[in-house]
Design a protein around this nucleic acid. Structure first.
Ligand SMILES: [Mn+2]
Ligand SMILES: [Mn+2]
Ligand SMILES: [Zn+2]
Ligand SMILES: [Zn+2]
Lengths: 143, 143
DNA sequence: AATGCAATTGCAAATCGTTTGCAACTGGAA
DNA sequence: TTCCAGTTGCAAACGATTTGCAATTGCATT
């Protein structure tokens, strides 16, 4: 396997090109997002950021998330109940299954479902701009 | 077509059986929900309620929605951005397509997608408790 | 029909997640 | 280095929803 497909996005480059200033707080937040394997919310990102640079504020986390969402660098999820959660917009599209007991988020992907969504939308005279598919469930009890 | 399948749910009966007290505010709110053809939010329900009984409070609307959701009489939707929106839990299950330009909500149903969701969940070792499928799109530009 | 009391209400204040005004600060082009 | 528009931290504001509390009211019981 070559490293042609980096797992961690080079945000700094990407953002510079988008004409965004790379500041200290942003560099810290970008680093956190780059190697987050989960779907942290703003407060969690803030905690991780403060551990690196105590002067970072929650406001800046929120402002940065909004900016990154705006340039398409991250995705915002509004899972049931809780606050917005984020993840880098790398790799192929996927949807989520949320374990309603543990809160675990499991990713999955179904070309078939994606196709069907398109069909449905167009049969209704619409083009899909984006969508949201979330399954909420619990581990199947062993039989 | 007979009237064997009532379009408007008989909430009062349903709730009495569930051991819920039928108060004046509740009766008004239930009436509004019964013949709401749309997906109103709490504030909208409040407005419609006040038009019938000026003494109803927004708190009571919120408390009643929570109660009705709890007994499964209504569904709560958290469409992108806005506040929670509600609809009677009658008829067959359906999902929604939201017109991102007008805010219109269009209902649709796909047995195929529902099946695929089940398959996916069980392949991941889960039972689906509920799910959420929302398509956000815009009217296809006429070609 | 009158009684009794837990359930329900309206109101105001609180809460939660998020946004914003503002004065101080800083990245990075020149 | 200078310079200033962009960015920051802070505190206050925000919108949606929830909650404490004292007053009211369903409704089961006499
Ligand atoms: Mn994900
Ligand atoms: Mn609907
Ligand atoms: Zn998808
Ligand atoms: Zn569905």
């Amino acid at each position: 396997m070559t490293e042609s497909q980096s797992q961690k996005p080079d945000y700094e480059r990407e953002l510079r090109n988008a004409g965004v200033r790379i500041t200290r707080p942003r560099r810290v937040i970008l680093g956190i997002l780059s190697d987050a394997g989960d779907h942290p919310d703003a407060m969690e990102i803030f905690r991780r950021a403060v551990a690196i640079d105590a002067s970072i504020s929650l406001s800046t986390v929120y402002r940065t998330m909004k900016l990154l969402e705006g340039v398409g660098a991250i995705h915002r999820h509004a899972f049931e109940g809780g606050p917005s959660r984020f993840e880098p917009a790398i790799g192929e599209h996927h949807d989520h299954l949320i374990d309603i007991e543990t809160g675990d988020v499991i990713e999955f992907q179904s070309d078939r479902i994606e196709e069907l969504q398109q069909e449905i939308a167009r049969s209704l005279g619409y083009d899909i701009v984006h969508h949201r598919l979330e399954l909420y469930g619990r581990k199947r009890r062993k039989r």
